[in-house]
Amino acid sequence: MAPSLRSLRRGLKPLVFLLCLAPALWLATGVLRPDWVALGANPVEKIQDTLGLWGLRLLLTTLTITPLRQLTGQVEWLAYRRMLGLFAFFYVASHLLFYVIVDQELAWAILLEDIAERPFITAGLAGFLLLVPLAATSTRRAQRRLGRRWQQLHRLVYAAAVLGCVHFWWQVKADIREPLAYSAVLVLLLAWRLKRRA
């Protein structure tokens, strides 16, 4: 058997933390540089897209933990799930806040219209709202207090991930290759679970 993952946790956890933070740091340095040169001609779009993409990527990464545990027989993977999930929430929440404050400049009438009339925005917002209770109950204490219901509640992550993919898919104009790839990964991750239960 491979060297115990547990013995690597002390070194690996800070590394994973830094890796998860890297996209945000890259954006921050891009904003601080004159004329946002690293962010291209449309920095608002670049920041918006980067935050959203990493939110979805980390959400899907969170969903790989259970299959990895089952495939390798090591429970150690679970030690990283909370951090990945919270980083996913951090990017999704930043994506939403950035859209509201910077992209739409707090124009509430336009925001309400967007939410009501543009299905991809409705889907994205719904996905975010589903993640809120999950982030709020991510502490060990909440886990203990909720007991069995904690696990039931956290199944919402599947719906949130589906909504995240739908949000991405409905947002693109014609080239669906990228959202298709993310959706395919999600379908695999969900299919794995269904197969295990069957």
Binding site: P43, V44, I110, E113, W170
Partner: peptide, 22 residues
Amino acid sequence: VDHPRWSQKRERRIGSGSLLSR
């Protein structure tokens, strides 16, 4: 007349020197 995916009421001017460029 809005596009189904975007409001067409405002636009972002590229290279305006501000992130708030609607």
